[in-house]
Nucleic acid binder design. Structure first.
Lengths: 227, 227
DNA sequence: GTCTATAACACGATAGAC
DNA sequence: GTCTATCGTGTTATAGAC
């Protein structure tokens, strides 16, 4: 048996990081063209990798999709949970206020979707998952979001004791819808629909958050529905 | 010049209605697979037409997309405008209440998206347009919706005089987001995300509308944002 | 107006050299 | 781990017979 040549520990990070570059390129391309229309050719070219690299590092295009969702959705949700932990720690025995909870829910997504390069991409991906339900994407998103939803619903249930738990779930869903909708309106590719009011198109993060919190808190404060 | 043979008025409606059957099949297929992944082959097969029929009756796939959007979005919006006319006629000199306006906005979309076969398809198409902005689809949707938005914003502005017009626009946008989001959660292909609360999944139209109206009206009644 | 046939090309996946 | 080459299949669009 011949001795193998001693393995030199890799210093060239480029090799090890090829999968990361592919993930980043895939995020951008999926967001621009959609999961289906985005081709592995374009993704690998953007990543500076060979077209066969996707099948080597990930098993298939579907696996790449799953890993993109896992990686980039995880980031927002850990921020949201950290914000929730933070406002629960600050709050007294009664728990956080409605406004504090709503802000913990929406601020990470709003600011991510605006100052980070990948932010708008993530919003588009989430909308794609809803617009074109598929097993792969539904499962990846649900796995990332379900624990977050459960914690926020519990906290909101405490902060809005005049509502039954079911009604909290309805309103929590409405809140997320309001947020996702305005974020997609503020997407430059979508501007056409927000043109009704230029002051919205030009709004900064804090204005968006203030408007969202006011509306959502008002929605939660509405009296419980009869029956 | 030789006389043309007298033209017999067409009795076989099948020939004249091929474009209609293609439009219906296209709506369903676009909703299931997305604008890009939906192939003309599948669409024409569903319509019982030949694959070349799309290029004969419509110029291209993009033209087919535009005509599908024009045709099916027009239906909802005329219903919404009719509902708005109706509640403005009933109301006194002060104009309709907030709740009446909100219901005029959401009821047509909610009930269409549930009892009609094409309803869920239209919701998915609208989400697709937001998730993957493209010139063709953006323009078609904007052209259909802009006049409706303008009228509702004016009416809501009257019914919520404690808000500046800009703030009405924000909240109008949030309202539509809440509606679209819950409708997509109730899409059977999407169930996974609404599993948090089985009572939501099983809700009927009136419950959905009642919950939406309560939340949105609460959101509009929230005090104006400082500044 | 409907059909068949085909042109012209893009895709994901993989085998095998390096 | 990276590359080239290729297989098999899918796509839109169109030309031309009926």
């Amino acid at each position: 048996m011949t001795a193998k040549p001693a393995r030199i520990p890799r210093l060239e990070s480029s090799a090890l990081e090829t999968p990361n570059r592919i993930l980043a390129a895939a995020l951008a391309t999926f967001a621009e063209r959609g999961f289906h229309a985005a081709s592995l050719k374009e993704i690998t070219e953007r990543a500076g990798a060979n077209i066969a690299a996707v099948n080597y590092h990930f098993r298939s295009k579907d696996e790449l999709i799953r890993q993109v969702l896992d990686r980039f959705l995880g980031a927002i949700n850990s921020e949201r949970l950290a914000a929730l932990d933070g406002c629960e720690a600050e709050a007294g025995a009664d728990g956080p206020t409605l406004e504090a909870l709503i802000e913990a829910l929406i601020r990470p997504m709003v600011s991510l979707s605006r100052d980070q390069h990948d932010g708008r991409a993530i919003v588009r991906l989430l909308l794609q998952v809803r617009a074109l339900p598929r097993g792969v994407t539904n499962n990846a998103v649900a796995q990332q979001f379900d624990p977050v939803h459960a914690r926020f619903i519990n906290a909101l249930n405490r902060a809005a004791p005049w509502l039954h738990r079911e009604e909290v779930v309805w309103r929590y869903d409405f809140a997320r819808g309001a947020m996702m909708h305005i974020l997609s309106d503020l997407d430059p590719g979508m501007r056409r629909l927000a043109d009704l009011s230029p002051s919205i198109t030009a709004a900064d993060d804090e204005t968006i958050i203030r408007q969202l919190v006011a509306f959502i808190a008002g929605g939660f404060r509405a009296p419980a529905t009869p029956r």
